[in-house]
Design a protein around this nucleic acid. Structure first.
Lengths: 226, 226
DNA sequence: ATATGTGAATCCTTTCACAGCC
DNA sequence: GGCTGTGAAAGGATTCACATAT
């Protein structure tokens, strides 16, 4: 009965950064942008973390995974810190991203203005519907998914957003992996079975809604981040 | 310096259910549906939790927050367990949900077929754009947000999905709260400042994308659920 | 005086392992 | 034999508190 299933029971004792640390870095970064737009040059850990109901100590511990970025007794330079966090996350460079499946959700993402200010560049859109192939949405031409290998290679795409329906998700994901995609943001309401080397994150509306309404009846224990 | 900010440093020592438990229950529930559709009547904790890279022990501990639902040496009845979990979450009853802001994302959600099989019923859509008010999307009539109080009261809406743009999000959220909404699923890329009694969950595409690409460089420590 | 960075302590979550039951 | 339910143990994450730096 022991060591039965896959690799779940391992004890790697590795010095790996917890993924929640990165998720918080991403929040800090957004807040830093706001603070800078509000004219703040120097900021404290309380100012950066407080709005998310996270403690200043948490902020400092999170950063300490990667180095020392503040001045004792003074605080942090908002701009320099932003750049450091972007370097840590990897968004100091630009990323070409593919949208796979131009249905309602895929179309909405292609038109989403939030990416304009980011270093994520929606560089390609794929679909298998002949009625959609060749059309252009917000400057992005919809390409036959059969031609995905070439496009992905040409654009150097490593990240895909999966917005196909549930039944098509697994096959589409496998195709992306075969084309060289290494990270997938999955909007389909199912789990993808992919090699462990591929990074997957799920945006699960049903799951979030269910969690929300459950919090309405039970008083649940959250942990910051709102 | 101590006891400085809000209520962050409390030690409530309460027997509150962690929100992650609920998030996993939601996943188990989905898998149970799949297992039932595949004809399985009786299932084991391994079968239910395994596909999410969660351990059988975790599944049993999660359930133990709420009671005892299995038979020793046998397993669980898939259908009965589904109903129990739905009762725990609260989706044994139907929920009317409002979509606030019928832009690209709001429209996509209104047309999203995933809600058909769920107990979430998109009962109302609000916008402030006269060109949209009065139109119908997927059977849902778009109502002037000025008339939200009446609609929300009539439909008994307690949950809203916020799909307005960032600058409008805080005001729209406050309006919803004033109308009696108690839970908000926020798609806008910002944090909402609301009374603690209101439940908020954020669907944050940028944050997830950043976390994903960060995982491409650093080998991060995830904890199941994929 | 003030705020960082970080070991130590605390708190929480997950896993282990086994008694109990089918 | 096989699987659940659950205390106990192990492992992680958060908070404390203070030495340190400006």
């Amino acid at each position: 009965m022991k060591n039965s299933t896959k690799s779940r029971g391992r004890k790697p004792r590795q010095e790996a950064v917890p993924v929640d640390v990165i998720r918080r870095l991403s929040l800090y970064l957004r807040n830093l942008r706001n603070l800078r737009e509000a004219g703040r040059g120097r900021v404290s850990s309380e100012e950066v973390a407080g709005p998310f109901n996270l403690s200043p100590a948490q902020f400092r511990k999170d950063l300490s995974w990667f180095g020392r970025f503040g001045k004792s007794g003074v605080g942090y330079e908002a701009e320099a810190l932003s750049e450091e966090i972007m370097r840590i996350i990897g968004t100091d460079q630009s990323w070409n991203v593919a949208v796979v499946g131009v249905g309602e959700m895929g179309g909405a993402l292609l038109k989403y203005p939030g990416f304009d200010q980011s270093n994520f560049n929606l560089a390609a859109a794929f679909d298998n519907n002949p009625a959609k192939i060749g059309r252009t949405i917000n400057g992005v031409k919809i390409v036959d998914i059969a031609d995905a290998p070439l496009t992905i290679k040409n654009c150097g795409i490593k990240v895909a957003i999966l917005t196909v329906n549930r039944d098509a998700a697994q096959a589409a994901a496998e195709l992306m992996v075969k084309c060289g995609v290494r990270a997938i943001l999955n909007f389909a309401p199912c789990r993808l079975i992919l090699p462990e080397t591929i990074c997957v994150s799920n945006m699960d509306v049903s799951c979030e809604l269910e969690t929300l309404v459950c919090r309405l009846r039970h008083r649940l224990l959250r942990k910051g981040m709102q």
